[in-house]
Design a protein around this nucleic acid. Structure first.
Length: 827
RNA sequence: GCCGGAGUGGCGGAAUGGCAGACGCGACGGACUCAAAAUCCGUUGUCCCCUGUGGACAUGAGGGUUCAAGUCCCUCCUCCGGUACCA
């Protein structure tokens, strides 16, 4: 019988199954967003990708396949699932690709998103394509513009001219986030500065809320930490030093920001950033040329050059003038040095060389006195060699001497308020978000500039991006849109007079700051979204993507959501309740997969060789979801083998030969089935896909080994196969549905079956193996009835020959019994 | 430097404080075959001996807590990611 089956068994042919089932599922509309009114919503979102020319690699699958499995399982759990996909089409990446390939960006977007969509379908990702959106579509970007106006109306969008982060390689201005570390997020090149008039959004107004609300988010610790650091809240005080130019009598209040007010009696000089506004009025004639040369030189350097040089040696120049320390009335010299940053605090510091490493280095180089005013033990330690940074007790600090740093900061701040010389202050590292780009491929900023009325929002949306053949940026700092004269010249919506359109477009990150809302009602026409749909679906229940957007997209989207909450448009303040970062897949050469390195493995080639199911299963099985893993094609052959084994086990035992019932086997089968259902359910729910797959493999191994006994389990065997197929369905839909059909299980598709449950009673076995330890080392085992109590276990363990032998007749000092598990005997 | 994460066989990786190495890959041996592929069955952490239902060692290093530690605590090392003159 067995042999006959094997000979007549049709081989597992994944191509046939894929051809057969794809159109069937398509017709059934299996992946349409659930709308049953009595069901709970589940919104699972993958980061909205920019469709690159290279297409999807197996690395991308590490994100998309696990979320797909979750969605399929949630549907089987009876939830309404929203699992949409769209294109982050506007922005720098698409435009650069367009320039490189000489294709219009709109065309690039169309071609590349076609490729992505085809590949998503190839791996059978269950997106609802009826909800596809594209950020470069006027139906979408009119609402991006609408939100810009909303921010403008709320005073959160403003235009200002200043030194901006500029990438000479990409020829584009960058937000602070895009220029983190002085490195351009796109090209990795060094960022310089350029004085330009730009649009900003006041994200700094939300710094505290962005920080506070992180607490309750179920996000990876690392991402939360990065956002905390980026926001960079620090508590300190602003204190005013009075400066006077001895020659001209010019006087100035110089506010400095410090977190170490307790060290102020040790301030032996002040330092201004080279960008400090009134430097020229402060310098003495003798020092004028030297200082101004230094300022020009420092400002010409890139941030990276400035910080790199700083690691070697501090530079700076004396201005010739002095400032008065408001606490002790001492006159201290004022320097200009580039280790003080223009963008932070007040761009001026009081320097305490005894208790700050940077000030110490500077003081040593310029022979400035170093005065110790803090000592950890209350005893001076000497600070000539190095600064002591830790808190301690104040020394030589007037009325504050003897206080601990902590109390000192409090009472010194009170003193400052009473005497009008300063106040406690909180500062943030985060800067306002620079959103304008002098680029073609983006949503035009919907502002009209009128000589009489100023900047006026255009309410007639969308402001359509004009068709242009030559959209290349240049070095002028002007947008290519400025060349579209006809488009630029318009009339003022307020006074009707002649006016000009703003020619900047918005950075791509603006478009992606609200797209998750659009998916709730992607075809809504009179408003950005249907509030009812948003109330139902949002916030996003599960958001998955790589960690690289920690302080870009993920901070911008949070900000946007809070603004909309303040506007009364949303009833939640955080867009993404749960965030997970998938680990990258590294190419065979140990490097990140990229087209330029030529190490990309595509899902297409893997599907061709092993099929969609094997690829999906391998991606899940490779290792933990969050872990960075190396691609290996040998591994996928393993999951392919597993599927072949499933195929043969299920079909060989489809109609098992009737035989006498075997009660022991039935109990064993029940136990293994329940154990597997439980393990797979819990593991999938907790993103432990690799161990879920391992559990299924163990189960199939068990079934395979026992297939000759299939008939001895009666209908239970077939029921076990049924459960196996349901468990496999979210991971390997093709083979699951084919076998489901061949087994004549009820329903059109396994995908619409209910997720199985398990009976805890099945997990209780009649007997268990107990480990017997002597002093923590395993010396014996015994099989006992499951319900055996502690006393009985101890008695039986002690009476084992082997144990008696080891104890040599002496009474054990102590016996620890864990019923169902072990007995540990301490002689 | 600071923040976050991680160190377990030849490899990817499993282990609510309770049998370290599940599952898979690779390798080795065998069956089937004229042969190969595929498939199936074994073996596979290291070492020791009296070769057994044996023993010792083993989760980056060193300490500690505990009857019991990969898991908890302390010190240190290495790697990955982030960030770094933020006063």
């Amino acid at each position: 019988m067995d042999i006959i089956w094997r000979k007549t068994l049709e081989p597992y042919d994944f191509r046939k199954l894929e051809e057969k089932w794809k159109p069937v599922w398509e017709r059934m509309g299996l992946y349409r967003t659930g709308t049953q009114p009595d069901r709970e919503p589940f919104y699972c979102l993958d980061y909205f990708p920019y469709p690159s020319g290279a297409g999807l690699s197996v690395g991308h699958c590490k994100n998309y396949i696990p979320t797909d499995v979750i969605c399929r399982k949630k549907r089987m759990d009876g939830l309404n699932v929203l699992h949409p996909m769209g294109w982050d089409a506007f922005g720098q990446p698409a435009e650069e690709y367009a320039i490189r390939t000489g294709t219009h960006p709109a065309e690039v977007t169309r071609i590349n998103s076609d490729t992505y969509r085809r590949q998503f379908k190839l791996i059978e990702a269950s997106y609802d394509w009826e909800r596809e959106i594209n950020s470069s579509d006027p139906d979408y970007y009119r609402w991006t513009q609408y939100f810009f106006n909303l921010l403008f109306d709320r005073g959160l969008a403003y235009q200002t001219e200043n030194d901006q982060m500029w990438c000479p390689e990409c020829r584009i201005v960058l937000s602070n986030e895009e220029a983190a570390g002085g490195i351009c997020w796109r090209c990795g090149g060094e960022v310089t500065r350029k004085k330009l008039k730009q649009w900003f959004l006041r994200i700094t107004d939300y710094a505290d809320r962005l920080l506070q609300d992180l607490e309750d988010l179920d996000w990876p610790e690392g991402i939360k930490a990065m956002q905390r650091n980026w926001i960079g809240r620090s508590e300190g005080a602003e204190v005013i030093f009075r400066i006077a130019n001895p020659e001209t009598g010019f006087e100035l209040d110089l506010p400095v920001y410090t977190t170490r007010l307790d060290t102020i009696y040790g301030a032996t000089f002040c330092v201004l950033a080279p960008e400090y506004p009134d430097i020229e009025k402060l310098v003495t004639s003798e020092k004028h040329d030297e200082v101004m040369d230094y300022v020009v030189e420092a400002r010409a350097k890139s941030d990276l050059e400035r910080t790199a040089a700083a690691e070697k040696e501090k530079t700076g120049v004396f201005t010739g003038c002095f400032a008065v320390n408001p606490y002790n009335g001492e006159k201290v010299p004022v320097y200009v040095a580039d280790y003080v940053l223009a963008g932070y605090g007040t761009a001026a510091i009081m320097a305490v060389p005894a208790h700050d490493e940077r000030d110490h280095a500077f003081a040593v180089k310029f022979s400035i006195p170093i005065v110790e005013v803090i000592s950890p033990g209350g005893i001076p330690r000497g600070v000539e060699e190095a600064a002591t940074v830790a808190d301690g007790q104040l020394l030589s600090s007037g009325p504050f001497t003897g206080l601990d740093s902590d109390e000192a900061r409090k009472s010194m701040a009170e003193y400052a308020i009473e005497n009008g010389i300063g106040k406690p202050d909180v500062r943030y590292r985060i800067r306002d978000w620079l959103v304008s780009r002098q680029r073609y491929w983006g949503a035009p900023i919907p502002i009209i500039h009128c000589e009489k009325c100023g900047a006026v929002p255009d309410r007639n949306l969308p402001v359509i991006l004009p068709e242009m053949d030559d959209f290349k940026p240049d070095d002028s700092g002007r947008s290519p849109l400025a060349r579209a004269e006809e488009w630029v010249n318009t009339t003022c919506p307020e006074c009707g007079g002649p006016a000009r359109r703003d020619t900047d477009t918005m950075a791509g990150f603006v478009c992606s700051s609200w797209y998750f809302l659009r998916f709730a009602s992607p075809h809504e026409s009179g408003r950005p979204f249907d509030p009812e749909a948003v109330r139902y679906w949002l916030p996003v229940d599960l958001y998955v993507g790589g960690a690289e957007h920690a302080v870009m997209h993920l901070i911008y989207a949070r900000f946007w959501t809070k603004v909309m909450y303040d506007e009364g448009m949303l009833d939640f303040t955080e867009p993404f309740s749960v965030l997970k970062n998938q680990g990258m897949i590294i190419g065979a050469d140990g490097q990140k997969m990229s087209k330029s390195k030529g190490n990309i493995v595509t899902p297409d080639e893997m599907v061709e060789k092993y099929g969609t199911d094997a690829l999906r299963l391998y991606i899940l099985f490779m290792g933990p979801f969050e872990a960075e893993l190396d691609w290996s094609e040998e591994g996928i052959a393993g999951t392919y083998r597993f599927l072949k084994r499933v195929w043969s086990v299920v079909l060989e035992t489809a109609e098992p030969q009737p035989m006498e019932m075997d009660e022991d086997f039935i109990v064993e089968l029940r136990y293994n089935t329940a154990r597997t259902v439980k393990k797979v359910t819990e593991d999938v729910n907790s993103f432990a896909f690799n161990t879920a797959v391992a559990a299924m493999m163990e189960y199939v191994n068990f079934l395979s080994v026992n297939r000759e006994r299939a008939g001895a389990a009666g209908s239970l065997w077939k029921d076990s196969i049924r459960k196996l197929l349901v468990l496999m369905a979210p991971m390997t839909p093709f083979i699951s549905d084919e076998l489901w059909e061949r087994m004549n299980f009820p329903g059109d598709t396994v995908t619409q079956q209910e997720w199985p449950c398990w009976d805890e009673d099945d997990l209780i076995l009649d007997s268990v193996e107990i480990v017997i330890q002597v002093k923590g080392k395993i010396r014996a085992r015994m099989r006992v009835p499951s319900e055996t109590g502690a006393d009985e276990l101890e008695k039986r363990a002690l009476s084992l020959d082997r144990i008696e032998e080891l104890l040599e007749g002496s009474e054990p000092r102590r016996v620890i019994v864990v019923p169902g598990k072990l007995v540990n005997i301490i002689p």
